[in-house]
Simulated assay, not measured.
Amino acid sequence: MSEPSAVTAIALAFANARAEARALSGFPGTVPESFEAAYAVQKAAMGVHPANLRGWKVAMVRPDWRAAFPEERLIGPVYHVIDVPDGGTATMPSITGGYTAAEAEFVAVMAQDLPPREKPYEVAEVAAAISAIHVGAEIAGSPLVNLNDLGPGSIISDFGCNAGVVLGPEVVGWQSRPWESLTAKSTVNGAAVGEGTAAGVPGTPLAAVAFLANRLSRLGITLRAGDLVSTGMVTGIHKVAAGDRAVIDFGDCGQFTIDFATAKPVD
């Protein structure tokens, strides 16, 4: 994994498969065995992505992988964002033969840049740099159906296993609301699949944003004003495919529907 050619080959394989809406039969090379190696692939993949970066996703590293990958979270870039009003519907792609999942999440919007620096960002400092919190959903997605089973090195390499973010209504007065009062319930094709609250995100969603700011700082990347941060699932990871419909109800903060359609190649 130390050779630039190997890094580039993996990055191009994932980037091209996504652009062509084409499933992969296996990981395209050797799965990175460290954060350093995996984020090198992610950086290379971002370098060939044609769209403008809209923000980032943050997800937990499974406990059984933390001996090899000793951080509690991982990150990935977000390029595809759909804004939906209360009661609205978003359509999101699913690569046939790949992996797709819907995850109810709370999404932060940054008000100011947090550039790389030596001193770690504290949660209170990061909270002051957020302009809004919205209800939303991360659409996890990859051309590789077993991407998650191969661990953080695999997930990070393929854009953090992100296919997009649904940005729902803003949470009014979020600074003064208890996190446990921000609830979510998810259904897929009419069947209840999970429920939870923002308090279920370890350390609260603000801890996820702080982790992101510090991980980006170590990578030499600025968390920019206007960036969206999808902070981690609150009702579970719900696998879906083209033709499925997910509805996420955030109680007094609104609800929205996500319809999944067969992903098409990028023109």
Rank of each mutant, 00 (worst) to 15 (best):
V201I: 15
E125I: 02
G55L: 02
F35C: 04
G200T: 05
V126E: 08
A51G: 03
G97L: 00
R245T: 15
F69T: 14
D252L: 04
Q175A: 15
A246S: 15
F159S: 13
D113E: 03
V145S: 13
S34K: 06
V123A: 09
S186I: 10
T187K: 12
A68Y: 01
S186C: 13
T197F: 04
T183S: 13
L144W: 05
A45P: 00
I95S: 05
A129F: 08
D244T: 12
N148Y: 04
A246H: 05
A59D: 01
R224Y: 05
R54F: 06
L182Y: 06
K119M: 09
Q175T: 14
G236Y: 03
A213P: 09
E170K: 14
S157K: 00
R215W: 07
G47I: 01
V266F: 11
S131K: 12
G251I: 01
T262D: 14
C253H: 13
M46V: 11
A40K: 10
G98C: 02
Y121P: 00
V58W: 00
Y99E: 08
V61I: 14
A163S: 14
I237C: 14
D158G: 03
T262K: 14
L219D: 06
P143T: 10
T89N: 04
A140L: 06
G200H: 04
V135P: 07
V209N: 01
T257C: 14
D158M: 02
S5V: 11
W65S: 04
V84M: 02
A38D: 07
F211Y: 15
P205T: 02
E105G: 09
D249Q: 08
L74I: 00
G153L: 12
A23S: 13
G220W: 05
V84G: 08
Y79I: 11
K239G: 13
G168A: 15
G88W: 03
V81M: 08
Q42V: 01
A127F: 04
T183H: 09
A213R: 07
V193R: 06
G251E: 01
P120K: 06
A140T: 03
P85Y: 05
R66W: 00
E20Q: 15
L147I: 14
V266Y: 11
S5W: 04
K264I: 08
L114G: 11
A111L: 07
A199K: 10
T8V: 09
A124F: 09
